[in-house]
């Protein structure tokens, strides 16, 4: 009996010491981790909407804040939102910068684990620049009648990104102007 108590005691000591050390290290690293996450999003926002110097939250989409960015003269520089949809094998999240006239300014894929060499090519700058200057009427994959040229062998990933951005643009227009633009007469393409 005494022997077993000793066993328990030794294990208890080891575990307590280990937890203590971990708690200390956790208290050191946790703020850095939080700061990193905040910074990463902030940097993505700055990247897709470089003219903006300050951001105000205006709404929510995909559990992320939609921001309205102001330039250094205090005028509206555009919006940013996070587009998110399930692609071929993972959630694809895109930070989207939008101009005041609801065209895409720039996009940045911030999260994806699509197939390497195929879908994962969506992080390449050549692909991301395809979206610049497009509004929601042409924000469709070429196969669906839009202007976004699919990545070779990864139509599903491309379509996911285009669709998620289109949904976001529509939502943004709805909350900002509460009216549909005149040039939209294209039928919605079913996925």
């Amino acid at each position: 009996m005494k022997y077993f108590l000793r066993l328990g005691f030794v294990l208890l000591v080891i575990t307590t010491v280990a937890s203590g050390i971990l708690a200390y290290i956790n208290s050191l690293t946790e703020p850095i981790i939080k700061e990193n996450q905040r910074k990463a999003k902030e940097e993505a926002r700055m990247e897709v909407l470089p003219e903006a110097v300050s951001f105000d939250s205006i709404s929510y989409l995909n559990e992320e804040v939609i921001y309205a960015g102001k330039n250094n003269e205090g005028k509206l520089a555009g919006y940013t939102f996070v587009a998110s949809l399930y692609g071929y094998s993972s959630d694809v999240k895109t930070m989207v910068g939008v101009t005041p006239d609801f065209k895409v300014n720039k996009i940045k894929i911030i999260e994806q684990t699509e197939t390497p060499g195929l879908g994962a090519n969506c992080t390449k700058p050549e692909f991301q620049s395809l979206f610049e200057g497009k509004n929601e009427t042409v924000m469709l994959v070429d196969k669906d009648g839009g202007e976004i040229v699919s990545i070779t062998g990864a139509t599903i990933t491309t379509r996911t990104i285009a669709n998620s951005i289109r949904t976001g643009l529509k939502f943004l227009r709805k909350i900002e102007v509460q009216s549909e633009p005149e040039e939209i007469h294209r039928e919605e393409v079913t996925e």
């Binding site: 575990t15 280990a18 937890s19 971990l22 708690a23 956790n26």
Partner: peptide, 8 residues
């Protein structure tokens, strides 16, 4: 609030 002990 001791999620950091998850692995152990």
């Amino acid at each position: 609030k001791i999620e950091f002990l998850q692995t152990i």
